[in-house]
Design a protein around this nucleic acid. Sequence first.
DNA 1: TCATGTATAATATAAGCAGGTTATGCATAA
DNA 2: TTATGCATAACCTGCTTATATTATACATGA
Lengths: 116, 116
Amino acid sequence: MTNSGEYVRGFTNYIILSILGNFDSYGYEMTKIIDSVSKQNIQLTEAALYTALKRMLAEEKIASYSGKNKKGMNRRYYRITPKGKRELKSFRKDWVMIENTLSSLVGGDFKYIREN
Amino acid sequence: MTNSGEYVRGFTNYIILSILGNFDSYGYEMTKIIDSVSKQNIQLTEAALYTALKRMLAEEKIASYSGKNKKGMNRRYYRITPKGKRELKSFRKDWVMIENTLSSLVGGDFKYIREN
DNA sequence: TCATGTATAATATAAGCAGGTTATGCATAA
DNA sequence: TTATGCATAACCTGCTTATATTATACATGA
């Protein structure tokens, strides 16, 4: 699929918040999750993800703490903050509308009464 | 809704192609269509629209011709080209997947088997 | 009647910014 | 050398904000 990354723009934050709404996670795992869920039709590169995480940390929508894997390698875990939870909740309410609207528009099945 | 313009990014081209897939139209009318269909939950400003139209003209996804109007400036009509039609058709096939994937991700209802 | 203001219709572009892409680098472990 | 894991710089695209111009209709007041 061409340009698949462009579709995610505007949704990146909410994808991250959604994952962290389910369980604490770390960058590398989140890319794997998105890869596995999206099966190539949506793309969120590591560069995009890590900059998003940094951004959201600064905005205090997420917090982070360090952990290790079994082999002893470092991981940086992220968890959602109350602020992040509020934002996610609010977005999910809007999402239904956004989805329907986008569907109507790109599907071409909208009604519009033309003048003159 | 905050930042509603950001959601459209990546879909702008296909929204325009979809409208022109239904009937020839002009910039001002297209903004009215999008406003009326989206009812404030998606936004495509005139500036964004006109730059998109220019871009798509250059890429030959759409073509244009001038029309007259009783009131106000002359209208510039746009129609979809064969190239644009192909792109729209191809996108609509992908859209189902994109929609499902986005829904799973932002809805948090995805399955992922975590390793240790 | 003329001038002025304002609302609507319609198109267009410049400057700036946000965030994604491409590319690259580094460390550890199997 | 492949997988795990994090991170950043430079670049590019496209949206936002702001502004300008053309054109008609209509109201209002001098």
